[in-house]
């Protein structure tokens, strides 16, 4: 198979205060995949995300991005390749205008002049926000700010788009518009979310992170219909939503691992919450 965009092996991490957040995480994402990263609050999802572009340094194990080792020398390149869209767009949009903000990443990569303008316009067009380039971000609606945040990352032409809770605080129409945009993009996606119907809609494959380790990795449909797995890891479908009524999305993705779902609840004692 091709070189994985993300190749995380045995990643463990403890915060400086001693709190261990990750216990040996393995995760592979291949080009063109859309993968959802599911898990209850406090499972270590955000900690994992911050390892993907080298903001946090692995305590043990390794992270490779498109075959690149996570070293100081590769850091700038890796940060271009892994585009993280953070949860609060106000954290991500810090420049005076939408256009300047989208230009921030590419100009850090050394782009100038017409090439930079073209990159900015292209990224804003991909999220349908091109006519807002001169507006200050705080004048936009929340849904628009989220779309601009996606554009700021697309402008760096990343190998993989990592979205942290993309649907948080979005109204249903903005949520659907974002789904349309994500579907239209020709880019690998890793999406951290609690929004399980959204995961089913957009991501053929899901990975469940619980208490700092990967406890399941497989077709989203299979995971969401595995009641026992769901209950064991505090994952709940919204009331009235049953994946069986929507049916298995086509085409079905290949399963990971020799025996399909990996369930490691037995290997580690539960934390008793």
């Amino acid at each position: 198979m091709s070189t994985p965009v993300l190749d995380v092996r045995g990643l463990a991490y403890a915060y400086p205060d001693g709190h261990q957040a990750l216990y040996g995480v393995d995760l592979h994402v291949h080009p063109g995949e859309r993968v959802a990263l599911l898990g209850p609050n406090g499972a270590g999802k955000t900690t994992l995300v911050l390892h993907l572009n080298g903001i946090l340094e692995a305590g043990a194990g390794s992270v490779r991005v498109s075959g690149l080792e996570m070293t100081k020398r590769n850091l700038a390149d890796i940060r271009r390749r892994v585009g993280i869209v953070f949860q609060d767009p106000d954290d991500q949009l810090f420049m005076g205008t939408v256009g300047a903000d989208v230009a921030f990443g590419p100009s850090n990569l050394g782009l100038r002049g017409a090439a930079l303008d073209a990159r900015v316009t292209a990224a804003l067009e991909q999220v349908g926000m091109a006519e807002y380039a001169d507006r200050p971000p705080h004048h936009l609606s929340f849904g628009q700010r989220r779309r601009v945040a996606v554009a700021t990352v697309l402008a760096m032409e990343p190998d993989i788009l990592v979205l942290d809770e993309p649907t948080a605080n979005l109204d249903p129409a903005s949520r659907r518009e974002l789904a349309d945009i994500l579907r239209s993009l020709d880019v690998t996606v890793l999406m951290v979310t609690h929004d399980l119907p959204y995961a089913l809609e957009l991501c053929p494959r899901s990975v469940v992170l619980s208490d700092g380790s990967v406890v399941a990795d497989g077709a989203t449909y299979d995971l969401l219909t595995d009641t026992e797995l769901m209950r064991a890891h505090r994952l709940e479908l919204p009331w009235g939503f049953d994946p069986r009524t929507t049916g298995r999305p086509e085409p079905a993705p290949p399963r990971r691992g020799p025996d399909g779902l990996v369930d490691s609840t037995a290997t580690r004692p539960s934390q008793g919450d």
């Binding site: 903001i55 609060d88 954290d91 921030f104 850090n108 700021t152």
Partner: peptide, 21 residues
């Protein structure tokens, strides 16, 4: 804390201490 998150977001997009012009 927001300042810290903004800084992370800036680093993630290749900030090295100089604002682009």
């Amino acid at each position: 804390e927001r300042g810290e998150r903004v800084h992370l977001a800036m680093l993630s997009r290749g900030y090295t201490g100089r604002m682009p012009r």
